[in-house]
């Protein structure tokens, strides 16, 4: 009896160790490309291109960060980072607020034309962005917004289809009994939104913040089209400026700046990470 227990214990332990080893090794393989890029910021071109396997830089060339930070034509990366923060921060904030409102309407309120607007929203998700680029640009230009960050931020105040859809999914998981109880207590539809739905949407909101932030942070096409002074460029445009195929590329400096550009995304993620999964599953049920 005793021996058997030890055996099970041992077996359990072994399987636990195997489990952890597997997950760690596999996870390492998953993040290897990222590590390679990060350590690439401490190598020079020859070291990056010729020994693409090794992660450990032969010489720790911190100077890449210094040269990279200087940027182009007298404008440093400090400016580019500031611009990216402004655009991504505003856009994320706007997306959260507007998408939550729209999701509430589409998921909970039975108003006339709801189905049509829902279909319209699904359609916008499927629309290839490249094709409405030109007409959209012309509209913004008529409005005199080109050259500012308005075209990059404004659409987010009107809700983003992807996040509306996601929030609708989560809203439909919130029991209707809660609404009904609130109505009996004398709550209007408006206060149901602010008192019940919005707080319970928290996990979905956190997901939105993370995803929207890094989407906007990485966005290349939008800033390229709408910003027209190097002083207003975002980080993603600036990084692309390193790579021009007709001449030499300073990969070390490019990787150094790419590495820096990932830090805000990582921070946002680390900060909200614990809400991500735990929150999603508990809030809707337990209230």
């Amino acid at each position: 009896m005793e021996g058997k227990a030890v055996g099970i214990n041992f077996k359990n332990r072994a399987s636990k160790i195997i489990y952890h080893c597997f997950i760690i090794v596999f996870g390492f393989i998953m993040v290897y490309p990222v590590l390679w890029m990060i350590t690439g910021s401490l190598k020079n071109n020859a070291e990056i291109l010729n020994s693409s396997l090794s992660i450990i830089p032969p010489n720790w060339r911190w100077s890449n960060f210094v040269t990279g930070w200087k940027g182009f034509g007298g404008i440093g990366f400090a400016t580019y980072f500031k611009n990216s923060f402004l655009v991504s921060g505003l856009a994320t904030f706007a997306t959260v607020i507007s998408s939550a409102c729209v999701a509430y309407a589409l998921a909970r309120i039975k108003f006339r034309g709801r189905k049509i607007w829902f279909t319209a929203m699904l359609c916008t998700m499927m629309l290839p962005a490249q094709i409405i680029l030109i007409p959209q640009y012309i509209i913004y230009n008529r409005l005199g917004f080109v050259g500012s960050i308005i075209p990059l931020v404004l659409p987010h105040f009107f809700g983003q289809a992807f996040f509306i859809f996601q929030m609708m999914q989560f809203t439909s998981g919130i029991p209707r009994e809660l609404d009904e109880a609130a109505t009996i207590d004398g709550c209007s539809k408006y206060s149901i939104f602010t008192r019940i739905i919005l707080p319970l949407l928290k996990p979905s909101i956190v997901t939105t913040i993370i995803i929207q932030f890094y989407w906007k942070w990485d966005d290349f096409m939008g800033p390229l089209i709408y910003l027209n002074k190097p002083q207003t460029y975002t980080v993603s445009i600036a990084i692309k400026l390193f790579a021009d195929a007709s001449s030499t590329t300073d990969f070390g400096a490019m990787f150094a700046m790419s590495t820096l550009s990932l830090i805000p995304v990582f921070l946002i993620f680390l900060f909200f990470n614990k809400y991500l999964v735990e929150g999603i599953s508990t809030s809707g049920l337990k209230g």
Binding site: S98, C101, V102, L106, F111, R112, R114, W117, M121, G159
Partner: peptide
């Protein structure tokens, strides 16, 4: 009304 108020941004 409620529906259109909330869906207005979209």
């Amino acid at each position: 009304t409620v529906g259109y108020v909330f869906a207005a941004p979209f």
